[in-house]
Amino acid sequence: MAAAAAAGAGPEMVRGQVFDVGPRYTNLSYIGEGAYGMVCSAYDNVNKVRVAIKKISPFEHQTYCQRTLREIKILLRFRHENIIGINDIIRAPTIEQMKDVYIVQDLMETDLYKLLKTQHLSNDHICYFLYQILRGLKYIHSANVLHRDLKPSNLLLNTTCDLKICDFGLARVADPDHDHTGFLTEYVATRWYRAPEIMLNSKGYTKSIDIWSVGCILAEMLSNRPIFPGKHYLDQLNHILGILGSPSQEDLNCIINLKARNYLLSLPHKNKVPWNRLFPNADSKALDLLDKMLTFNPHKRIEVEQALAHPYLEQYYDPSDEPIAEAPFKFDMELDDLPKEKLKELIFEETARFQPGYRS
């Protein structure tokens, strides 16, 4: 834990890192770190609560700039109880001085990944967590956004079992017609939660990839272990087919990539493993919904509104309290091709509203 900075004593240090967030945020305490930044909790002297502050230093890398800009653009436009918001952003007053960006968010005690390492969940908890994931996802999908990296560590939890989806750095506007060349190379989302079509096709992607990830998360809540822990690309596919069985001819016809289709045709026939054999203690309604989410063919996979209306979630289902976005989200430009200098300018502009004396 960093010592509390005395008023006016300059930035606090946390594990050798400068955290320049005073005077409003003090009493910093280390939480963890990701690929390009550290997260601390801090005391907000204005709202009198502890908050989470993520320090991001992305400006050396085009990919990190892209992810940072995506996350900020999306989260500043989203407003939903099951999606983490941005409360404040701290950065230098000029673009030349801006080396880091500090993002202030609600402090959540833990995440689903940490929880599943230590606790076996009751059916009631599984049901409530799944409902909140789908409630947040309904809003995301209504904005025409794909999260693309749903996994237990991106689901934040607090002691009252509130759940918030975080990390929109890989999110995209849904565009089933656009052929994202190089899709697989830039697709760094965790393999275990990846839909089979991501490994088999490169053309376009749809909201059904997020539903697949939610199915993987439900299976993990039922058993405290990942359902498809593939060691590499082909191993991942083999794990999936080992449980779902061989795809039907109709399902194979959806695979545009001939090499991928021929690979699947070359494999020995596998039978589907019954879900109640894998999860003998699970609620039968939970397994019915799991089956509809972990469907090989993305066109037959359940959609988020149908999933919310499934009998497993009937005690929570309330369409009048499951809000959607006001308007579909649009990125003005494809960020993939922009140089990091341009992305830095866009991050600077996007964060201006939090600067003292800002006038829109």
Rank of each mutant, 00 (worst) to 15 (best):
N27S: 08
D210M: 01
D162K: 15
K151P: 06
Y358R: 08
I83Q: 12
P229K: 05
A174E: 02
V145P: 05
P23K: 15
P247F: 11
Y30I: 10
A9N: 15
A52Y: 07
S29E: 09
R91L: 01
E250K: 05
Q132S: 03
R77K: 12
D318F: 14
Y205G: 03
P323E: 10
I95N: 00
P323N: 15
D167F: 06
I198L: 04
M108Y: 10
T118A: 06
N144P: 09
A219L: 01
P196L: 01
W192A: 02
L157G: 07
L155V: 14
K231Q: 06
L265T: 11
F129S: 05
V104Q: 06
V49H: 11
I133H: 08
R79Q: 10
T181L: 04
K330C: 13
C127V: 08
N47I: 01
A143I: 09
Y131D: 13
I211C: 08
F354I: 01
V145D: 07
I89L: 12
E60P: 15
D175H: 11
N82S: 07
D283N: 01
V104P: 07
I347M: 06
I133S: 09
F279G: 06
N154P: 06
F129W: 10
F183E: 06
V304Y: 13
K342I: 00
N87Y: 00
R15M: 00
K300W: 09
G37L: 06
R77V: 15
Q62W: 10
N253T: 06
G22L: 12
Y312W: 12
K340D: 02
W275Q: 05
I56D: 04
L76F: 13
H147G: 02
Q105P: 08
K231S: 11
L116P: 05
K292C: 10
L146H: 08
F19E: 04
G245N: 06
F183A: 12
P93E: 12
N82Q: 08
K117D: 11
P311G: 13
N257H: 08
R261L: 00
S208V: 05
R79T: 13
P274A: 07
G169A: 02
K342N: 00
D167I: 07
N201P: 04
V173Y: 09
L112K: 09
N297T: 00
R194T: 04
S153C: 01
A6F: 15
R301Q: 03
G16H: 09
I302L: 02
P93Q: 00
L75A: 13
P196A: 02
E109D: 00
K55R: 04
L134I: 11
H147Q: 00
M221N: 07
W212F: 05
S213W: 04
S246P: 15
I211R: 01
L157A: 06
H299L: 00
M221L: 00
T68I: 09
H178P: 04
G215N: 02
S223C: 03
K164Q: 05
N201D: 08
A143Q: 07
Q66L: 00
A174P: 05
R277L: 06
R353T: 11
I324D: 13
C40S: 01
Y128E: 06
D337G: 15
P93A: 14
R353P: 12
S57I: 11
Q62Y: 10
I74N: 00
L115F: 14
L150T: 13
F228V: 05
D149Q: 02
D162M: 14
E349R: 10
Y30N: 01
L338K: 09
R70A: 05
I83V: 12
S29L: 04
T185H: 04
T181C: 07
Q97D: 08
E334N: 02
S320C: 12
Y36G: 13
Y263R: 06
S266V: 13
Y358N: 06
D179K: 10
S266T: 15
Y64F: 01
L76R: 13
K231W: 14
L134D: 03
Q132W: 13
P226E: 02
L237E: 02
G136M: 07
A174F: 14
P247G: 13
H61E: 08
R24L: 01
D291T: 11
P311W: 14
K340W: 11
P319Y: 12
L137Q: 00
A35S: 01
L278I: 14
K285C: 11
D175R: 06
F19Q: 07
P58L: 08
T159G: 09
P176K: 05
E341D: 00
N87C: 15
V49Y: 13
I89F: 03
N271R: 07
G245C: 00
C216S: 00
A174R: 08
T118V: 11
G136K: 04
K300A: 11
P298Q: 14
T185R: 02
C65R: 07
G136N: 06
Q17M: 12
I256W: 07
C254W: 09
I255Q: 07
E305P: 15
K270W: 11
Y131K: 15
V51L: 13
K300E: 06
F279M: 08
I83P: 08
C254V: 09
C216M: 02
I84C: 13
L258N: 09
F168Y: 02
L130A: 07
L338N: 09
I126N: 05
L343D: 05
Y25Q: 05
I53W: 08
D321K: 14
P319R: 10
Q105S: 12
D177I: 05
Y233E: 03
S284T: 01
E71V: 01
I31M: 11
V39I: 05
K342Y: 10
D283I: 06
D44P: 10
Y139G: 08
E334L: 14
S208R: 14
E197F: 02
E12G: 07
W275L: 00
T181F: 09
Q119K: 07
V273A: 08
K203G: 07
H141T: 10
D336I: 14
L335K: 13
I86P: 15
H80Y: 09
T160K: 03
L170T: 07
L200V: 01
P356M: 15
Y131G: 15
L130S: 07
L264M: 00
V214M: 02
